[in-house]
Design a protein around this nucleic acid. Structure first.
Lengths: 246, 246
DNA sequence: AACCGACATTTGTCAAACGAATAAAAAGAT
DNA sequence: ATCTTTTTATTCGTTTGACAAATGTCGGTT
C-alpha cells in the first residue's frame, strides 16, 4: 500500500518535499529500511522534475535519514539512525557554535564538569571490567612520550568516551561523545608541553583509580581538578596568544 | 582572494563537494556570512555540472551551514550557526533513535533526571526573576482544565525549557532543549486524564517553589519524584497497550 | 525629487538523455 | 545438470541546455 503525502506549497518545492518526507519518516509512516518510491515516481507524485526530487533527497541524506543504492534492488531507503552519525553532526554543530561565540568556553567547561560528573557517579557502580581495561589501555598509551600531540589528544578523547560509556546510559553516551569531540580543538590548543601531558595523565589516573574502587566522589573530585586545570591552561593559552598579537 | 579547495574523488561527486565545502567552513577558511562562488563558478571549479553542485549545496543547507538568496546580490552564504536549528536536528535524531530502540526509555528517564537535576542545582543560584515569571506563566496555563492534551504537553515542554534556561548555561540549554523535545512523544502518551495533569502540575509547583527559595536539593527531590511518576505512568501505558494487543 | 519600468544577475526548476552500478535472468561451458 | 559467464533490466548518478522567478540596479518619466 503506497504511503500518501500531503503536499503544501509555501517555500521552495525541494524543501517542501524534503520536509514532507522527513515528517513521514519521523512519525513512522515510513518504516526503517523501507524503500521509498523511485525518484521518477516521486517526481511524478509531487509533480516536479527528478533533479528537484534529488535535491530534496540529498537534504535527507545529509541528515542520515535515508541512504541510497544503485541497481535493480537499489533505491532510496529509510536509514536506521546511527548514533555515531548523529553524534558527529552534533559535534560539528557544537564546534561551530563555539567558534561563533554562541557558546562560551566557560559554559562549556561547566557543562562538561557537571555532565561528566554524572557519568562518573553512574560509572562507579555500572562500570564493567572491559571498560576499565579500555581506559587503562588509553592511559598506557598516553604515558608514551613519543606520541605526537594529535595522537595524545585522540587518546584523550577515547579515554573520556570510555568514561562516559562506563556509565552505561545510551543517551548520555550519545550526548557526551559529541561534547567531548567538540572540546577537542580546545584540548589541541593547550596540549603543547610534556608537563601538561604528565599533569593530565595524573588526573586520568586518579579518575580511573576512583572507578576501580567504585569511589564516585573521588572520581568527581579528580574530574573537577582536571577541568579546573584545563580551564586555567586555556586561559594561559589565550593570554599568550594576546601577547603575541599585541 | 579566492579560497582553494582540494578535490579528492572517492565517493560520489556531490558528496565529495559537500564534504570539501563543509571542511572549508568548519576550519574557518570560509567565514560566517561570506558568499560562496556562484553555482556556475563552483561547477567549473569542481568540474561538474550545476545540478551536481546544487545537490552538494542542498546537503549543506540541510545542516544549516549555508543559506541562499536569489537575485543579483544573492547567492549562497555561510550561515551563522543557529542554536535552535541545531537543537531541532538533535531532537529529531534523538526521537528517531528512541523510536528505533537505540535508546532505551529507562536510559532516557535516568539521563533526564540527572541532567535536569544539574540544571536545577545551577538554576537555584543563577535563576533570574524573568525566568521564574516564565515558569509561573506556564504553570498558570497548565492549571486550565480546558486545555487540550497537545496544549498541555506543549506548555510542559516550555516549562522544562525555562527550567534549563534558568541554569544560565548555553551548552546545557542547547542539549537539554533537544532532550526535552525528544521526550514529548512519551509525555503525549501518558497525559490522558485530569488526575495525571494535576499530579504533574503539583510536581511543577514544587520545583518552582524550590527555585524561588533557592533550595537546590528540594528542587532535585521534586524532579526525582516527577521522573519516577512519569516512568510509572509510562509503564502503565505500555501495559495497557499490551493488554489491548493480547 | 520621487516613482516606475527595463535589465542584469543569481538561484530555482524543468526536460531528456547518457553513464555506472548492481542483481537477476539468460546463455554457454564443463 | 551444475557451474560460470554474459546479457539485460532497473535504478541512482551526472550532464547539458534551457527557462522561470526573485531581486537589486539603473535609467527614464512625471
Amino acid at each position: 500500500m503506497p504511503v500518501e503525502f500531503e503536499n503544501v506549497v509555501t517555500t521552495s518545492a525541494a524543501k517542501q518535499i524534503a520536509d514532507t518526507l522527513r515528517a513521514a519518516i519521523m512519525d513512522g509512516r515510513l518504516q526503517e529500511d523501507e524503500r521509498l518510491p523511485t525518484e521518477e515516481e516521486l517526481a511524478q507524485r509531487f509533480k516536479v522534475s527528478r533533479p528537484t526530487v534529488r535535491e530534496a533527497l540529498k537534504r535527507l541524506a545529509a541528515q542520515h535519514l535515508i541512504r541510497s543504492r544503485r541497481g535493480p534492488t537499489g533505491g532510496n531507503f529509510v536509514a536506521s539512525p546511527a548514533p555515531e552519525d548523529a553524534a558527529l553532526s552534533l559535534a560539528n554543530a557544537t564546534t561551530l557554535m563555539v567558534a561563533a561565540g554562541a557558546i562560551q568556553l566557560d559554559d562549556m567547561a561547566t557543562a562538561r564538569l557537571e555532565l561528566e560528573g554524572i557519568c562518573c557517579r553512574l560509572a562507579a557502580t555500572a562500570r564493567t571490567d572491559a571498560q576499565l581495561e579500555a581506559m587503562r589501555a588509553e592511559l598506557a598509551r598516553q604515558r608514551d612520550v613519543s606520541l605526537t600531540d594529535e595522537e595524545f589528544c585522540a587518546s584523550d578523547v577515547r579515554f573520556h568516551r570510555a568514561l562516559v560509556d562506563a556509565a552505561g546510559n545510551s543517551l548520555l553516551s550519545f550526548l557526551m561523545h559529541a561534547v567531548v569531540e567538540a572540546l577537542q580543538p580546545v584540548s589541541n590548543m593547550i596540549i603543547f608541553r610534556v608537563r601538561e601531558r604528565q599533569a593530565i595523565v595524573a588526573f586520568h589516573e586518579r579518575i580511573l583509580g576512583a572507578l576501580e574502587s567504585r569511589d564516585a566522589e573521588a572520581g568527581v573530585a579528580a574530574l573537577g581538578d582536571l577541568v579546573a586545570y584545563t580551564r586555567d591552561r586555556y586561559r594561559d593559552a589565550l593570554d599568550r596568544r594576546a601577547e603575541r598579537a599585541g
